[in-house]
């Protein structure tokens, strides 16, 4: 019952996204614009591999900040939040939204990374396994923290500017370790070297998701 409701929310969001392609279209344009600004400003410069790892996560962070708040904000804007509150348990809502946002950010990251690998010559992944694990765990952590912050800001005024302001300090521990692991993967570090970062990312994701589930009642029902 509980998982079924979450799956229903996921499929609802998924189909409404497929119908309008609102989030994905604007996010693709956002990535194209950001990437071209970075390419223009670094044209002809030798970007060091470790710097390119940082730039990749700047693109991902801001793409997430412009796209992931939709899931709760759109419910408030269309006035459908009340209906959800009446019919679905809060934790199912959170899980459904989290699943949708994770899916969105995985698709988005796949595109960002493909585009980035093609256009950024100094970004060559020497340790693919480390890189893939970083993206898999890091994206989920990013999705879990930003989904919860999205729920908070959907009730506030000036949602757009508030979202990165609230998310950044929360996401900073994750971002720092993710950038470090990406740098290791570009420099050809071993799995054992990146293990510390993986542990931090994984425990961060677990802690944030747990806290989000516990506290979501207070955000959702007020």
């Amino acid at each position: 019952m509980f998982m079924k409701a979450a799956a229903a929310i996921l499929s609802k969001d998924f189909y409404s996204e497929l119908r309008t392609r609102y989030a994905l279209n604007s996010l693709i344009m956002f990535v194209v614009v950001t990437l071209s600004i970075i390419l223009f400003s670094t044209a002809g410069e030798a970007v060091s591999p470790s710097l390119s790892a940082g730039i990749l996560w700047i693109i991902i962070f801001f793409a997430a900040m412009s796209g992931l708040s939709r899931c709760f904000v759109s419910e408030e804007e269309r006035g459908t939040a009340m209906t959800l509150q009446l019919w679905v348990k809060p934790s199912s809502v959170l899980l459904g939204k989290l699943a949708f946002n994770s899916l969105l950010i995985y698709v988005l990251n796949a595109m960002i990374i493909a585009a980035y690998l093609v256009t950024m010559p100094s970004f060559v992944v020497k340790a693919p396994l480390v890189f893939i694990l970083t993206i898999l765990i890091g994206s989920f952590g990013l999705a879990s923290a930003s989904t919860f912050i999205a729920a908070i800001i959907s009730k506030a005024n000036s949602k757009g500017t508030l979202y990165p302001v609230l998310s950044f300090p929360i996401l900073l521990p994750l971002l720092v370790s993710v950038i470090d692991a990406t740098r290791l993967s570009v420099e050809g570090g071993s799995l054992a070297e990146a293990m510390g970062d993986f542990k931090i990312m994984f425990s961060y994701s677990v802690v944030v998701t747990t806290v989000a589930i516990v506290l979501f009642d207070f955000v959702w029902r007020d």
Binding site: I152, P169, I170, V208, V219
Partner: peptide, 15 residues
């Protein structure tokens, strides 16, 4: 909401 935010911040900062 601000109480919830301060709890989330308090949980993530020790990382």
């Amino acid at each position: 909401l601000s109480a919830v935010y301060s709890v989330v911040a308090f949980v993530t900062v020790p990382f």
